[in-house]
Amino acid sequence: MPQLDFFGLAMLEVVLAGALAGVVGVLVVLRERAFFTMSLTHATFPGAVAAAMLGVSVPLGAAVAAVALIAVAVGIGRIRSQGPAVASGVMLTAGFALGALLQSLAPLPIDVESFLVGQVLAVTGADIALTAALLVVAAAVWALAGRHLVFSSVDERGYRRAGLAPWVPEALSLALIAATVVAIMPVVGAILGVALIVAPAAAARLVVRDWRWMLVLAPVVGIASGVVGLLASRWLDIAAGGAIALVAALLYGAAWIVGGPRDRRPAPAPRVRGTIGAETP
Rank of each mutant, 00 (worst) to 15 (best):
H148G: 09
G229T: 04
L164A: 06
A190L: 00
A202F: 07
M214Y: 07
V137F: 04
S114Y: 03
L217Q: 10
V228Y: 06
A183P: 04
L130P: 05
T131S: 14
V187N: 00
W213P: 01
V182N: 06
L192F: 14
I128V: 14
L174N: 04
A183V: 11
L176S: 07
V221Y: 07
D127I: 08
G146I: 08
A183N: 10
G229K: 00
A171D: 08
A138C: 07
V150N: 10
Q119N: 15
L134S: 00
I128H: 08
G125S: 15
S225L: 05
V220T: 14
P166I: 10
A171H: 05
E170P: 02
I128P: 05
A190K: 02
D127G: 08
D210M: 07
A175S: 13
F115C: 12
P200E: 15
L149K: 05
E113C: 03
V220C: 03
T131C: 11
A178C: 05
T124R: 08
L215Y: 01
A171Q: 11
V207C: 07
S173L: 14
A203C: 11
A199R: 13
E156K: 01
A132L: 15
V207A: 02
V181H: 01
L215N: 07
T124G: 15
A204I: 09
G226T: 06
G222S: 12
L144S: 12
W213M: 12
R209P: 09
A171E: 05
V168F: 15
A165E: 09
L121H: 04
L217S: 03
A175W: 01
P169M: 11
L176Q: 15
G229Y: 04
V227N: 06
L174R: 00
V137S: 06
I184L: 13
R212P: 10
L215A: 03
S173W: 03
I184H: 02
G125C: 04
R147A: 08
G193Q: 11
W142Y: 13
I184R: 03
A224V: 12
A145F: 13
A145W: 13
V137R: 03
E156T: 09
W142H: 05
A203I: 13
G222A: 15
G146A: 12
P166F: 13
I177R: 11
W167T: 11
I191V: 12
L149V: 13
R161E: 14
D155S: 07
V228L: 09
F151S: 06
E156Q: 09
A203R: 13
A190Q: 00
D210P: 11
V188S: 13
E170G: 13
A178R: 01
M185S: 02
A126Y: 09
T180G: 08
A195N: 12
I184A: 11
V220S: 05
L144P: 04
D155G: 00
E113H: 06
W167H: 06
A218I: 01
L121P: 04
A195I: 09
P169G: 07
I177Q: 10
G146K: 08
V188Q: 13
L121F: 10
G158H: 15
A204W: 00
T131H: 04
V150H: 14
V227I: 13
A165N: 14
H148F: 02
